[in-house]
Nucleic acid binder design. Structure first.
Length: 833
RNA sequence: GCCGGGAUGGCGGAAUGGUAGACGCUCGGGACUUAAAAUCCUGCGAACGCAAGUUCGUGCGGGUUCAAAUCCCGCUCUCGGCACCA
């Protein structure tokens, strides 16, 4: 009977499901392991990226299960979002119908791939049972003061017809989903105070060093953008106005030669008024022109800085000197205070600006080993640390100390204080879209903004909607839905028609998995306490500053709300960011027409082959080059394993299941086979557990298979050795190719499931070698290799090598200068002549 | 500009101071077959050589070492992230 995956795979999928071997319960007596993949958006069908993500996850889940851990391995769908609305318009159906049919289809696909999920725990964020808890959590956040409504300039995508969070504006100001340039709009929107947690979000990155990729930590650190500095005030001469400024380089305060405001700064209008006349018109015109520029225009490389002199002067709080007050386009209103002290000698941007407008440049920091540069002739700003000069009481101090002393001065004189600034902005969660969680708020003419009482949740999304053809939110066109009664006064009120950013849903779904059946809370506290945190998370790098920041933030808040234990501050202990799947040099995508359909591959080669290829072709973090030939290679390998067992089946079944010790084996080939078996087991275990090097683990298993094919047992002992080797191979291969290994395991007469069988133990005594190959080097160049008994000391090895005729011959007529012997490895003889 | 990753055969990739190229793919030779597919055996970094073998070889230039893909110094190219963030 040949290897027929089309029979074997469905058969074992059914057996596993019937026996419920992948269903788990919290059990504090057992050590748990929570293995999680970033859940998919139900776009219609699985793509290769999904297959790669989940093949890695299933490998971990199966491996750890076999290692005896109580493994939580769930799957669900991130099923709210724009594409459902677009598809609904295109196919003239409802977003919910489209979404649910995709969920069912993709679930079937995942089952055909043989992943070992506990399917009872499937979570769909678009189901009322889930999103009602989004609403409930939103209200808890609201009570805690973490939710606020603000009229502010926000990012607007015209194509998606909705606002976006800062994190969703990428690549110089375009929408993360559709690539449309983002514009600014002034709107009333709901924000979440993620900035309250900015400091902790940075601090905890250190705890994640062990298990997270360095680059993700760096990206988050950059995104949160913590900087320490001094916040201080400056008077505007001859007015009552004061300017608030922030700087990280307070040590350069003596080098201030101008002060600049952002065009949107509230003082701009006042100053224009005070200036009056022609100057007023000029200032207002300038501010208007700057405000109308898009993010792209403002941040394009090489754009000249622009500014206008207000004619006013700011007073330096230390020196009392007056510096001209400018309005400049490179000052951002939404960072710091929207005003800066200009120190052109030591800041490149200020330098560019000063040169353009002939503002004086004064150096106040000199290099450690030389004199200060001349401000009039220097080519660029000297931003590096050095020694303070021309700086009164700071003179002679190295930058770090000068900063400290200057900051102390400001605090002592009550003119400013130390402050920490973050780049991170609050999270805008309102979306002017239909297919999302309704924000549980109502607007009453008498009572204002009123939260929906918890006992009135859920605010259900109507499913019988017609999507407006020209875009926009159908909820806003449904008076029957949005007209309601004020929970406070009972008068007429209107529901919030915006829905929540879908990243809200995905910020706590992993908590829900721990107890998806509870109906009186988002999740069961005890279940979460047992299962959380996620031990291994797997997904794409694209979420480094989106989902992965929001989920970290949520976990801290849920912990503070008492829903998670107080010390549970981080959701994901280890993170693996898998590489992309590449074909013909580019990422697989519909628009490039280079997609390979996982279903097709599974149909043609089987799930085991597809999974094995994916895990073998590249290390998990690297991009994977899709190769049909490579898939065939994986298929060939599984065929070899199948035939190996099948062709020796009778003898293997008869063979003793007893494990013979190496010391009980006398035949050299048997001993060698035994050693290979255990060194393979040892290395594969380490590759998976410690190194996460699945490609090399597969390579070892191929080597073991090659050795087994060449192995010819001579007697009963030999067959016992072979049986042990074959079963070890099946055990190690099981997490990679679970169906074929399960089949062969049962063919050998085993009755339990290999999928949940205990991982084999390495017999350390079987790793001991009789002899080792050592290399003879002359002057560092390899000359020959030969066998010596294992365990020789340095001296004995050297003596052994030097006594060989071949060695003596090589050294004839040469003077030995030095010898180096590395036991078990090599001997290097340094000679002259 | 700043931060991070990477560069090894025809290709994907092994090797973290000690035999460079494991394992696989491609390609060549052979066996089986009427034939093909499948399968099995075998060769495969480059140069010279009938061979034994010798020399060269891990992006480039230096250095440390008996010994460097690996460590140090200085570059080049490339991929990714952030970027008037004060």
């Amino acid at each position: 009977m040949p290897y027929d995956f089309s029979v074997i795979e469905p058969k074992w999928q059914k057996e596993w499901a019937d026996a419920k071997i992948f269903e788990v319960e919290a059990d504090p007596s057992k050590e748990k392991f929570y293995c999680l993949e970033m859940f998919p958006y139900p776009s219609g069908a699985l793509h290769m990226g999904h297959l790669r993500n989940y093949s890695i996850g299933d490998l971990f889940a199966r491996f750890l299960r076999m290692q005896g851990k109580n493994v939580l391995y769930p799957m669900g769908f991130d099923s709210f979002g724009m594409p459902a609305e677009n598809a609904a318009i295109k196919h003239n159906t409802a977003p919910s119908e489209w979404t649910w049919s995709n969920i069912e289809h993709m679930t079937e696909q995942l089952k055909r791939a043989g992943y070992s999920y506990d399917w009872r725990r499937r979570v769909e964020t678009c189901s009322v049972d889930y999103y009602r808890w989004n609403q409930w959590l939103f209200l808890q956040f609201y009570k805690k003061g973490l939710v606020y409504r603000k009229h502010a300039p926000v990012n607007w995508c015209d194509k998606c017809q909705t606002v976006l969070a800062n994190e969703q504006v990428i690549d110089d100001g375009v929408c993360w989903r559709c690539g449309t340039p983002v514009t600014k709009r002034d709107l009333d929107q709901w924000f979440i105070r993620i900035t309250d947690y900015a400091q902790e979000l940075v601090d905890c990155l250190d705890e994640l060093k062990e298990g997270w990729p360095e680059r993700v930590l760096t990206m988050q650190r950059n995104w949160i953008g913590r900087s320490e500095g001094v916040h201080f005030q400056m008077d505007i001469a001859d007015t009552d106005l004061k300017i608030e400024a922030f700087t990280t380089r307070i040590d350069t305060i003596f080098g201030v030669t101008f002060v600049a405001l952002a065009a949107e700064h509230p003082h701009v209008k006042k100053l224009a008024e005070m200036a009056g006349g022609k100057k007023k018109e000029e200032i207002l015109a300038f501010a208007k022109r700057m405000a109308s520029r898009s993010t792209i225009e403002r941040t394009a490389v090489g754009v000249d800085k622009e500014g206008i002199d207000t004619g006013f002067f700011a007073v330096n709080p230390v020196t009392g000197e007056k510096s001209p007050l400018w309005i400049a386009d490179y000052i951002l209103m939404d960072y710091g205070t929207g005003a800066i002290m200009g120190v052109p000698a030591h800041d490149q941007r200020d330098f560019d600006f000063a040169r353009k407008y002939n503002i004086p440049i004064i150096t106040v920091v000199r290099p450690v080993d030389g004199p200060a540069e001349d401000g009039a002739t220097m080519a660029c700003a000297a931003a590096a640390d050095g020694i303070a000069c021309n700086s009164g009481f700071l003179d002679g101090l190295p930058t770090e100390e000068a900063i400290k002393k200057a900051a102390d001065w400001f605090e002592e004189h009550g003119k400013g204080k130390r402050e920490i600034q973050f780049r991170l902005r609050d999270w805008l969660i309102s979306r002017q879209r239909y297919w999302g969680t309704p924000i549980p708020m109502v607007y009453c003419d008498h009572c204002g903004v009123v939260p929906v009482p918890e006992d009135q949740l859920p605010v259900k999304l109507p499913l019988d909607v017609e999507m407006p053809k020209n875009g926009g939110n159908p909820l806003a066109l449904r008076p029957d839905w949005y007209n309601t009664i004020c929970p406070v006064c009972g008068g007429p009120a209107r529901r919030e028609t915006d829905t929540m950013d879908t990243f809200f849903c995905s910020s706590w779904y992993f908590d829900r998995y721990t107890s998806p059946w509870v109906s009186d809370a988002p999740f069961d506290k005890d279940a979460a306490k047992y299962w959380m945190t996620v031990d291994q998370y797997i997904g794409g790098i694209e979420h480094a500053c989106l989902h992965l920041i929001y989920a970290r933030f949520f976990t801290k808040v849920l912990s503070d709300l008492g829903l998670l234990p107080p010390d549970m501050r981080e959701p994901f202990k280890r993170l693996l960011t898998q590489g992309m799947v590449i074909k013909d040099g580019a990422k697989m995508s519909k628009s490039l027409g280079n997609v390979v359909d996982p279903d097709e591959i599974i149909k043609r080669y089987g799930a085991d082959t597809a999974r094995l290829f994916i895990l073998f072709a590249a290390p998990p973090e690297k991009d994977l080059d899709w190769s049909e030939r490579g898939v065939e290679g994986a298929s060939r390998f599984l065929g070899r394993v199948f035939r190996l067992v099948e062709q020796n089946l009778e003898n293997l079944k008869k063979a003793s299941a007893q494990r013979l010790k190496l010391s009980e084996l006398t035949d050299a080939a048997d001993r060698k086979m035994k050693r290979i078996t255990h060194s393979t087991l040892d290395r594969v275990t380490k590759d998976i557990r410690d190194e996460r090097q699945f490609n090399t683990a597969v390579a070892r298993l191929m080597e073991l298979t090659n050795a087994l094919i060449a192995f010819a047992p001579k007697d009963e002992k030999g067959w016992a050795v072979m049986r042990e080797a074959v079963e070890t191979l099946l055990c190690c291969l099981s997490p990679f190719a679970p169906h074929i290994t399960e089949e062969l395991w049962h063919m050998l007469g085993n009755e339990d499931f290999l999928s949940v069988h205990r991982w084999f133990e390495v017999d350390e005594s079987a790793l001991v070698e009789d002899s080792v190959t050592v290399v003879l080097q002359i002057n560092g160049k390899v000359r020959e290799q030969f066998e010596v008994p294992a365990g020789l000391s340095k001296e004995d090895l050297l003596a052994e090598v030097m006594s060989r005729d071949a060695t003596k011959k090589r050294l004839e007529g040469k003077e030995v200068i030095k010898t180096i012997a590395v036991p078990g490895k090599l001997v290097n003889i340094v000679v002259k002549g």
